[in-house]
Design a protein around this nucleic acid. Structure first.
Ligand code: MN
Ligand code: MN
Ligand code: MN
Ligand code: MN
Lengths: 224, 224
DNA sequence: AATAATATTTAGTTATGACTAAACATATTT
DNA sequence: AAATATGTTTAGTCATAACTAAATATTATT
C-alpha cells in the first residue's frame, strides 16, 4: 500500500499539466515524463484503482483530492530541497532540480520539518516557485509572461522554469533572477526578440524564451 | 548497467559480514538483510554475473575488488550522511541510520563532496565507525569488546552498533558514547553483568550488550 | 555407513513499471 | 459520408527483486 517513486512523479506531473488545462491527456503526460503513451495508460489505471486520480479512457485524467494532496506534498519537499541545496550546500540553481527529483522520494517528514525550520519557513524556491504549505495549500501569484509585457513597462522577475539547466545558466548569466527589477525597452514582433534592461545591464532575449519567464507587475502596470 | 539500490545494499551487507569471517553464507546474509535465503541465491547469481562478487554455490560469497570498492563507496556515503544529519539537522544518533539507509542511494558524488567539506573531512560517524576515504580505503582501529576488558582496566569508547535505535537510546542515556572514558569496576561472569564507571557515573550493563561495544585501550592496558 | 538435521538451490509465482506492435477510437480533411 | 491522420488502449514481453514449495547438498549424529 506504500506509494512508490513512480506514483509520486506521476502525480506531480499531472498536477503541473493540470494547472494549464483542467484535464490532462495521455500523450501530453507521456511527452512531459519521457515515457511511452502505453506506459502512461497502464499507470493511470493503477493510480485510479488507488483513488489518486480520476481517469476516463480516451478522455484524460484529473487528480482526486487525495491525489492532489500527495502531489503538493511531493512538490513541497522538492522545492524545500532545492532551496536547501542552494543555501546550505552551495549548489548552483541549475544543478538542484535533478538532485531534488531523487531526494523528494526519500526524505522523511521529520527531516523535511528540520529543513523547513533551518531555512526560516521560506515561501519560494530558488526559481521563484511558491512552496506549498505543510497542510497542502499553494498560493498562485498574479503574474504575466515576460513576452506579454508592453514596451516601456517594467516589473519584477517572479518565477523561471527549473527543469532545464542550460536555460537556467543562461538566465543566471544575464541576471534574469527572481527578485530582480526588469524593464522592457523594445519588442520586435518580426525579429521575435525583446530588448530588456535588468540591473543596469541591457540584454536581448528571444520572445520564445521570454514566454517561460513570469513577471510581477504592480497595479499601475509598472509605468516608470 | 546502472547499479540498483538492492545491489548496493547487498554489497554493503556482504562487506560487513565478511569482516567477521572471510566467506559469507547465504543464510547469514538472508538473516542479516531480512529476506529469504532463496532470494539471496537469486541475487548472488546476478551480482556474480556483474563481477561484483565471487560466488560458488553451497560455498558462500566474497566481494571482488570492484564489489568491495562499491561497498566502501556506499558505506562512506552512509556514514557521511549520518554525521551530517546529526551535526547540521540536529537529529539524534538513534534516528540517523534508517534515514541514511535511504539517502545513501540517491546522493550524487558532488553533494557527497560538499557534505564532506562542510563537516571538515571527518574520520568517524556518530557511532564511532570509521568513514572510508574517497578512494576506498578503510582503516580499522585496534579495539577490544567491552565484555573482554578486565576488572580495573579502563579505555575509551570507540564504536557502537548503529542499527538498533532502542539500544542507541539506552547507550546515550548512560553516556556510553564514542570518545568517553570508561573503566570496568566489576565483572560478574555468573550474573552476566559488568559494572562500569563512565563520566563520573556508575552503571551496570549486561555482558551480552557489552559484546557489541568496542573499546580502545592504550598499550599499557589502561591501568589507572 | 545409514539416518537425520540443516543449509542451499531450483522452479515457478507475484508485483512494479517500463517497452513494442497491433487494435481501436476520435478528430480532421476531402 | 468516407478517408485519413492522430491519439489512446490492449496484448504481450522484459527486467528487477521479492516470495513459497520442492528438490538437492552438506554436515552432524547414531
Ligand atoms: Mn522525482
Ligand atoms: Mn524549482
Ligand atoms: Mn540502503
Ligand atoms: Mn553509523
Amino acid at each position: 500500500m506504500k506509494n512508490t517513486e513512480s506514483t509520486e512523479n506521476y502525480l506531480k506531473s499531472i498536477f503541473k499539466l493540470q494547472t494549464v488545462d483542467k484535464k490532462v491527456s495521455t500523450t501530453d503526460l507521456a511527452d512531459y515524463m519521457g515515457v511511452r503513451a502505453a506506459s502512461v495508460t497502464g499507470m493511470l489505471k493503477k493510480l485510479a484503482r488507488k483513488k489518486l486520480v480520476s481517469y476516463q479512457p480516451y478522455k484524460g485524467v484529473t487528480l482526486t483530492h487525495i491525489g492532489r494532496k500527495l502531489a503538493l506534498k511531493t512538490l513541497r519537499t522538492h522545492r524545500l530541497i532545492e532551496l536547501f541545496l542552494v543555501e546550505h550546500l552551495g549548489l548552483s540553481w541549475e544543478e538542484v532540480h535533478g538532485e531534488a527529483e531523487k531526494w523528494e522520494h526519500v526524505i522523511s517528514g521529520k527531516i523535511e520539518e528540520r529543513i523547513d525550520k533551518l531555512l526560516g519557513y521560506p515561501l519560494h524556491d530558488p526559481h521563484g516557485s511558491p512552496i506549498p504549505s505543510a497542510n497542502g495549500e499553494l498560493k498562485i501569484k498574479d503574474t504575466v509572461r515576460l513576452d506579454r509585457v508592453q514596451e516601456g513597462e517594467s516589473g519584477t522577475i517572479e518565477e523561471v522554469p527549473d527543469e532545464d539547466p542550460e536555460f537556467l545558466a543562461y538566465l543566471g548569466e544575464n541576471d534574469i533572477i527572481p527578485g530582480n527589477k526588469i524593464k522592457v525597452l523594445e519588442k520586435s514582433v518580426v525579429g521575435k526578440t525583446l530588448k530588456i534592461q535588468i540591473t543596469s545591464k541591457k540584454h536581448t532575449i528571444g520572445l520564445k524564451a521570454a514566454e517561460k519567464i513570469r513577471v510581477h507587475q504592480p497595479k499601475d502596470k509598472g509605468r516608470k
